[in-house]
Simulated scan of single mutants.
Amino acid sequence: MIIHIVAGGPEHLIPDLSKYTENEIKWVGVDRGLLYSLKRGIVPAIGIGDFDSVSEEELSWLRQQCEHLAISPAEKDQTDIELALDWAIIQKPTLIRLFGVTGGRLDHSLATIQLLVKGLSNQIEVELIDQQNVLSLYEPGTYKVYKELEYRYISFLPFSEKIQGMTLSNDFKYPLADCDLTWGTSLCVSNELIQETGTFSFNHGIVIMVKSKD
């Protein structure tokens, strides 16, 4: 099962959701993201959040359209997105995708990126996707990357204080061999695949990989 979480970030930054049509998808609408989903003909299995970004009239309509609403108080210790992610993790999916979580308040965007660690700790792949980028986190290991015409650039950034043994295969335009990365470096930004596939590997730390369009 795959779970798609649609949050209430700027609507123009949400990609075309009709492209994500694999079997066994369960949708979650977070706050105004529930409204965005319904406008696209998607009826989420559940709506989660305090819904402080919708009007009373809109909330009344959402109640009619979505059978299950988990409405939380506005004053709480978790963001709406964290509540939705926690719910999704309990369902034990193979993949969680987050939409509508970038481009608004920077504090919320940064907090959501940090929340991806919850996927790692539960052995669930989590992707953050907007109109321009696909972002995911990785623990030590060796990984294959596929060339995608839509996402030309591939960047790797330290998510932990230090990355040890970072290696990019010769299939990358700028290969790298057994290099240590620390916070504050842009060494691995804006790379590209020159073959159909490539690999990256490292032996310590957590790495952010971002695939970006032109």
Rank of each mutant, 00 (worst) to 15 (best):
residue 10 P to I: 05
residue 122 N to C: 08
residue 193 L to M: 11
residue 102 T to W: 11
residue 55 S to Q: 06
residue 89 I to A: 14
residue 212 S to L: 02
residue 161 E to R: 15
residue 38 L to G: 07
residue 32 R to H: 01
residue 157 L to Q: 04
residue 181 L to H: 01
residue 74 A to S: 15
residue 173 K to I: 00
residue 155 S to P: 05
residue 161 E to D: 12
residue 167 T to P: 04
residue 16 D to P: 03
residue 107 D to V: 12
residue 116 L to F: 12
residue 68 H to A: 06
residue 203 N to R: 15
residue 158 P to Y: 05
residue 45 A to P: 05
residue 102 T to D: 02
residue 139 E to D: 09
residue 97 R to T: 00
residue 11 E to A: 08
residue 24 E to N: 12
residue 89 I to Y: 11
residue 174 Y to W: 13
residue 192 E to G: 13
residue 172 F to Q: 00
residue 45 A to N: 06
residue 195 Q to R: 15
residue 36 Y to R: 02
residue 196 E to C: 09
residue 103 G to W: 11
residue 131 Q to M: 06
residue 43 V to F: 10
residue 188 C to V: 04
residue 197 T to H: 14
residue 134 V to W: 03
residue 204 H to G: 04
residue 79 T to P: 10
residue 100 G to P: 10
residue 155 S to V: 01
residue 125 E to P: 01
residue 85 L to M: 15
residue 136 S to E: 13
residue 56 E to W: 01
residue 143 Y to C: 03
residue 107 D to P: 01
residue 110 L to K: 10
residue 196 E to T: 15
residue 92 K to R: 15
residue 68 H to M: 00
residue 140 P to N: 03
residue 157 L to H: 00
residue 204 H to Y: 13
residue 30 V to L: 02
residue 64 Q to H: 05
residue 53 S to G: 11
residue 55 S to G: 01
residue 79 T to D: 11
residue 55 S to W: 01
residue 125 E to F: 07
residue 156 F to D: 12
residue 85 L to Q: 03
residue 191 N to H: 13
residue 182 T to L: 09
residue 135 L to D: 06
residue 130 D to C: 08
residue 24 E to C: 02
residue 123 Q to G: 07
residue 73 P to A: 01
residue 87 W to C: 00
residue 106 L to G: 08
residue 85 L to C: 09
residue 28 V to K: 09
residue 70 A to V: 08
residue 44 P to E: 06
residue 132 Q to M: 07
residue 99 F to W: 12
residue 87 W to R: 05
residue 144 K to I: 10
residue 184 G to N: 08
residue 10 P to R: 01
residue 214 D to L: 10
residue 151 Y to T: 08
residue 64 Q to M: 12
residue 213 K to V: 10
residue 211 K to R: 15
residue 36 Y to H: 02
residue 124 I to V: 10
residue 34 L to P: 09
residue 80 D to S: 13
residue 90 I to C: 09
residue 24 E to R: 05
residue 40 R to H: 02
residue 14 I to K: 11
residue 207 V to R: 09
residue 57 E to S: 03
residue 101 V to H: 01
